[in-house]
Design a protein around this nucleic acid. Structure first.
Lengths: 131, 131
DNA sequence: GACCGCCTTGACGTTAACGTCAACGTAAAG
DNA sequence: CTTTACGTTGACGTTAACGTCAAGGCGGTC
């Protein structure tokens, strides 16, 4: 075989284009320790793991998590394979907190969606009145 | 009757305390045109309408809407009683867009919640391995 | 009448999350 | 061998959403 499967990589520009962000953003996330692409000389080489991680980050960003919160979660992906009981238990506790927080946001979202729906309803009623 | 029902009002400090924000935040929202409390002399007097509006604002904030987005929604509450067809139709369109956006965020949240759950699962599995 | 607690309006400081610009390296193309 | 396209590292600029501080007004109270 000439090509090894799963070995797809990307340059900054490619990946940035794919994910709809700028290269500056990717470099910034690296500086913040959110991703750590390989290097070929000076150039950054991103693999599928980096890409997955980035998608996670961007998703979190989309509903308003700060990068600090996001970092906490993505870091946990690596911690979940730990071999220290104490560590794993702390992680589970933290995960429970995060889940609770996310559920609260979910509830907020639901309520807001409801209210947006109500306003739409009012609008339609008003339109009906006007003939 | 000495007290009229529904006429409860608040000072900045009271309302801020109630809602868990600072007075600075309330003044800021006013400067941004998100709320417009009455005045008694120089002092701000907030009524139930202001309070409701603020709760809406804070809820939106909690799941990551910007103040600009929030403003758009709360303003619509006032626009829904409009008497111009054209206006109402535009509003309905915008509401549909907003709803779509909110639903997208909801999906993102769901996925993230799923992944947080997965990590927790891994943790528990690892803990089980360790006896 | 001095002090206290709460209010007011500026005005400047701060943090997060990038944008923008300068100055430079490098590999392929013409 | 110059141009073009892409990459690199600083370093400074920007915007949102407030925080913080200064300077002072108003109504009670000890």
């Amino acid at each position: 075989m000439t090509a090894t499967r799963e070995a797809r990589t990307w340059t900054v520009g490619e990946l940035a284009g794919d994910l709809g962000v700028t290269t500056r953003t990717l470099r910034f996330y690296e500086a913040e320790g959110l991703i750590t692409p390989q290097r070929q000389g000076a150039k950054r080489i991103y693999d599928t793991r980096d890409r997955t991680r980035l998608k996670l980050i961007l998703r979190g960003r989309r509903f308003g998590m700060t990068l600090a919160e996001i970092r906490e979660i993505v870091d946990m992906y690596d911690g979940a394979a730990s071999s220290e009981r104490r560590q794993l238990e702390k992680l589970l506790d933290r995960l429970a907190e995060i889940e609770a927080d996310l559920r609260a946001r979910q509830a907020d979202l639901r309520r807001t969606l409801g209210e947006v729906g109500d306003v739409a309803k009012q609008c339609r009623a008003r339109l009906a009145e006007l003939g």
